[in-house]
Simulated scan of single mutants.
Amino acid sequence: MRFTNKSWWRHDVAGGTPHIKIDLSEQMAYFYKGGRLAGMSPVSTGKAGHRTPPGTFRISEKKVNHRSNLYGHYVSRSGYVLRSNVDVRRDRRPPGSVFRGASMDYMMRVNGPISMHAGYVPGYPASHGCIRLPWHMAKIFFAHASVGTKVSIVP
């Protein structure tokens, strides 16, 4: 698996239909406009047991400030973290706590619960299936992709 910290965006590539390609083996995202490469970014996709599914999809929803409804933390009413990195489907909520979903800024829903969003990108698959981009690149991809943008996820 190749990893690069190199991310870039070409503002001079204008017009054309946007298309995003996610390469799972390279852990890279490529943003095209009208067939021309406009930018690229490292990503972190699904770890073992939570693999990011390959296929061709379309962005179905976008939200600047989104929180996960599956993964996050159980916190006290005053905000103190009582239990971190929980999955609400498996981890019991401590009495008196509330669920605070993990931050997923610049969320672009791709396939059911699978989304592209800003997050930690360590250089290898580490997510619960989502496609994490560095914050600055998630913001750029979000600004240039619209609902309906084609997303190809290749092995």
Results as ranks from 00 to 15, higher is better:
138 A>Y: 07
25 S>K: 15
31 F>D: 14
144 H>K: 08
123 G>N: 05
132 R>N: 04
63 K>W: 05
133 L>I: 10
41 S>L: 02
137 M>F: 08
43 V>N: 10
139 K>M: 12
79 G>M: 03
70 L>A: 12
129 G>H: 06
125 P>M: 09
44 S>Q: 06
56 T>V: 15
152 S>Y: 01
58 R>W: 14
137 M>Y: 13
122 P>Y: 07
98 V>H: 12
143 A>S: 13
151 V>L: 06
55 G>I: 05
52 T>Y: 11
82 L>S: 09
29 A>I: 02
123 G>M: 06
32 Y>Q: 13
104 M>T: 12
33 K>F: 13
68 S>H: 04
97 S>A: 14
87 D>V: 14
106 Y>W: 10
58 R>K: 15
143 A>H: 13
136 H>K: 11
50 H>R: 09
41 S>M: 04
35 G>C: 04
105 D>L: 01
63 K>F: 01
112 G>R: 07
71 Y>T: 14
144 H>Y: 12
104 M>I: 11
154 V>S: 08
50 H>S: 12
46 G>I: 06
109 R>D: 00
59 I>G: 03
34 G>T: 02
44 S>I: 00
20 I>H: 11
32 Y>T: 09
151 V>G: 15
148 G>I: 03
118 A>C: 01
43 V>E: 12
52 T>I: 06
140 I>Y: 10
55 G>E: 11
150 K>L: 03
69 N>H: 14
120 Y>N: 11
128 H>Y: 08
105 D>W: 08
55 G>V: 03
96 G>N: 06
109 R>A: 10
58 R>N: 04
149 T>K: 15
117 H>Y: 02
54 P>D: 03
74 Y>N: 14
147 V>S: 14
92 R>K: 07
104 M>H: 06
142 F>M: 09
116 M>K: 01
143 A>E: 12
122 P>D: 11
92 R>M: 11
23 D>P: 01
